[in-house]
Design a protein around this nucleic acid. Structure first.
Lengths: 72, 72
DNA sequence: CAAAATAGTGCTCTTTATTGCTCTATTTAT
DNA sequence: ATAAATAGAGCAATAAAGAGCACTATTTTG
């Protein structure tokens, strides 16, 4: 999963939940500036930052063996 | 997936592949110090760092909806 | 057990992420 | 079309990550 995909998932999830960046920042404890940077693809957030955001959105960061079969 | 789990997965995968920290550092382009810190649970790596390491190990970072049913 | 290899840590410097503030751009609602 | 709300960006300070080096601790191997 590339960076852009991760961003897309966060943005989509946030939109679905109808939460603004501002409110998500508050809820997650991540600075608004940091969140803005992340969502606009400018950042290289730390794992902690990503996890804080993910937590609030009901998302989960995971690390798994890449599927080599490549379909499904 | 908590931080410790992510670390465990990296270490286990590296062990399985019989790659040393030193070699993984070289292959991934991540500094040896950084890798050591990460694996020993001392660090808070950036997403980029995690992805570099994951790539070499054939692992994938992903972000998905948390499963609320909680069992499998 | 001794030697060799691998992993972890203190010190330290450089780079960059995080953050707030302010302003601009874009999107949404009336 | 305007106003209001939301998102993106420049500037700047602070904190923390990335990194190398040298040393210690632990693990593995003969």
């Amino acid at each position: 999963m590339h960076f852009e995909e991760l961003i897309k998932i966060v943005k989509e999830r946030r939109d679905n939940l109808q939460v603004t960046q501002e409110y998500l920042a508050q809820l997650s404890g991540v600075g608004l500036r940091t969140l803005k940077q992340f969502e606009s693809g400018k950042g290289n957030p730390t794992l902690q930052t990503v996890q804080k955001i993910a937590d609030v959105l009901g998302l989960e960061v995971s690390l798994k063996l890449k599927d080599v079969t490549r379909n499904q």
